[in-house]
Computed example of a mutant assay.
Amino acid sequence: MTPERPAADHAGPDGYPDWLHRLEREIRPGPVVRLRIWCRRRARRLMATAGVLLLLGAGGYGYRQFRRPAAATPPAGGAASPAARTSTAPAPGVFAGTLAADWPAGPAGITWPAARPTDGFTAAEVSAGLARVRAALLTARLDRAFMTGDSPTPLLRHFAPAARDTVRKDWSTATIGTYATRVSPDVRLTPDQPRAKGAITYRGIRDAGGARTLEVTSNVVWVYGFRDPDSRTGRSVVLLHDEVVWRLPRAGDVVRSDRGLWLHRMSSYGWGVDCDAIMHGLVRPGRADPDAPPFPEDPDKLYDPAHPIELPVSC
């Protein structure tokens, strides 16, 4: 049940993929953004802001990114964002002024379905499977000790024994970001509890080997607050939107080592993420590239779990 992986992009002379350099030649910023970045970072080369982790084919993994200036700044011209215009009550802390301002803290914004008998699974089996996925999600995206630590062990325990080597291999690569959050050791989260919004669905299927399998799909937007001394406000917001297909084969249909949780398909994009860090599986706030233009759509739309995972630009 180990997912296949696509061939890696060819690296350029500096070690980064060719598509990274192609994008840098394609986009240019407005003068206001350029001046702000130059003043903050001086002559230092600025890193790209946003990261996209994009699925390339069923059962495989891929990686793309896009750019954005530091979060929590109003659009050019001083107009308030849609979040600021429509919010009825200011949110405390780092999420004020974003669409996550009114979201419940932690996992409360995720909608979980009722467990019912489905395609060869009893209601009790469905309930147990959903509980396993929920535990894995909360470790991967919301457990602060795990996210700021340097060990995959807390996450590995949620997976089938035969699936754990895949997670270990993903640990220091961009792929880990499609289903787990690793905070870069050189940055700090704010005390604010992350926000989440999304929904879970499930169905019973037969896998390629004929085993009855509970397939659970999570589609969730996760929003984190970071201390960020390089930003105007001293803090930044990072958004990650993932869609993960989890599989749990029925215990009686597979060997013992295959019993448990598997990753079948994953895709993700990020907003406000540093591209260099994400290449190593780490998350930190990013800065806009001096040659980047405005993002081609309203960034507030990225907070919607219904937004397509595939984005028009990448780093």
Rank of each mutant, 00 (worst) to 15 (best):
A100T: 04
A84I: 02
G106P: 02
P75R: 14
L54D: 00
A58G: 06
L46P: 07
R68I: 03
R28Y: 07
A96C: 07
A80P: 02
S87G: 08
L53Q: 05
A76K: 10
A72C: 14
A84F: 04
R45M: 08
I110M: 01
V52S: 03
V33S: 04
L35Q: 14
T98H: 02
A91G: 13
A48D: 01
P29L: 15
I27A: 07
A91P: 05
A108H: 06
P75V: 11
G109W: 02
I27V: 13
P29Q: 14
C39M: 09
A105C: 08
S87M: 12
R67Q: 06
I110N: 00
P31D: 14
P31A: 15
G93P: 04
I37D: 07
F66M: 14
G93Y: 02
R41G: 10
A58Q: 11
V33W: 02
A89G: 09
R41Y: 12
W38D: 12
R42F: 09
A76Y: 05
A84Q: 12
S87V: 09
Y61Q: 05
G60C: 11
P90E: 03
A83V: 09
D102F: 02
F66W: 07
R64C: 01
V94Y: 01
G59I: 03
R36G: 07
L54A: 06
T49S: 11
R34A: 13
D102P: 01
G57Q: 04
P104G: 10
P92H: 10
A58R: 14
T88Q: 14
A84Y: 03
R45I: 12
A70N: 05
G106V: 11
A100N: 01
V52N: 02
G30K: 15
P92V: 04
V32R: 14
R64S: 06
W38L: 15
R67V: 09
P74V: 12
A84N: 00
P82K: 13
G77S: 12
G60Q: 14
R42T: 10
G59S: 07
R67M: 03
Y63C: 01
R42Q: 15
R41V: 15
P29N: 15
P90M: 08
S81I: 09
R34D: 06
A108C: 07
V32K: 13
P69T: 08
P107R: 06
A50G: 11
P75Q: 10
L46F: 07
G106T: 07
R64Y: 03
A71F: 02
V94M: 09
S87R: 15
G106D: 05
P92T: 10
S81E: 05
G62Y: 00
Q65S: 08
R40A: 13
R64E: 04
P29M: 15
A101M: 02
P74T: 12
P75H: 08
T86N: 06
